[in-house]
């Protein structure tokens, strides 16, 4: 059967026909007309969005999405997305808004961003007793990090040569190494960090300093100025009335710091 490469390829092409999508009106009009705001969220990204014991979604993103829908006076429909499919979901108008999207130049070519609504940064965390204020203090200290991640790259770039960077292959291991004292410090995103800060008060871990900040934005399709404005206003409103601070305190363990929302 493997002698049939040319035939197989011909069949593949035969199975496909192609067409392009047409132009659309502003997403805001669609949302108001249908009465539903479709928001794309992860199912496995605590504490922003993850499942509870009843398998319903909860977290920072979910609370913000609920507030957005309430503000627009429409129903909320949460759509579970994966890292692979979420941008195609948005550009294919399967969802109106994506949550937890970091802004970068490549993405800006295909989608639009609101202002930041949640902090996402990589920080060095250590016990209160350890005196670390910046990257140069990492000299001769042992630090756990998840291998090959953004944390790893930014830590490796920032730390002095004598820093003992121990690379693990998943977050449980990174956290366990730190909590069990195998390493003095750990470098993680604030999503993972929040769980450590909240859970294990016995060694009094605290955040020492940030390595890199890439706050989360809402993402929408390009050329939807009306929707963009409504969402930006909604975030402004939540910042002013303190509701975003409440969400942050509940899921990240502390109120918002405006500095953390700067790209």
């Amino acid at each position: 059967m493997f002698r049939l490469l040319p035939q197989a390829l011909a069949t593949a092409v035969g199975l496909l026909a192609f067409c392009a999508g047409g132009a659309r009106a502003d997403g805001l009009a669609d949302i108001q007309k249908s009465g539903v705001l479709k928001v794309g969220v992860f199912a496995d990204f605590p504490p922003f969005s993850s499942v509870g014991a009843d398998m319903s979604l909860k977290g920072y993103d979910i609370d913000v999405a609920k507030a957005l829908a309430t503000g627009l006076k429409v129903k909320l429909a949460l759509v579970e997305v994966t890292g692979q499919n979420r941008i195609p979901y948005l550009t294919g108008h399967r969802v109106d808004v994506l949550m937890s999207v970091g802004k970068n130049a490549e993405r800006e070519k295909v989608i639009a961003f609101t202002q930041a609504y949640a902090p996402y940064y990589i920080a060095v965390i250590g016990p209160k007793a350890t005196d670390v204020k910046g990257a140069s203090d990492l000299a001769d200290k042992s630090i756990s990090v998840n291998r090959g991640t953004l944390e790893d790259t930014s830590l490796t770039a920032a730390a002095p040569k004598s820093a003992d960077i121990r690379r693990f292959d998943n977050y449980s291991a990174v956290m366990q190494a730190f909590l069990s004292g195998q390493v003095q410090l750990m470098a993680v995103g604030n999503d993972v960090g929040a769980q450590v800060l909240a859970k294990h008060t016995d060694i009094a871990p605290e955040q020492k300093f940030q390595l890199l900040s890439s706050p989360d934005h809402l993402a929408i399709n390009k050329e939807e100025p009306a929707l963009l404005k409504v969402l930006d206003d909604a975030i402004d409103g939540m910042k002013k009335d303190g509701s975003l601070d409440k969400v942050s305190t509940q899921w990240l363990g502390k109120p918002l710091d405006p500095k953390d929302l700067v790209d």
Partner: peptide
């Protein structure tokens, strides 16, 4: 042959 190509694919 088409069916064979399908299976091979």
């Amino acid at each position: 042959r088409s069916a064979n190509g399908y299976i091979g694919l």
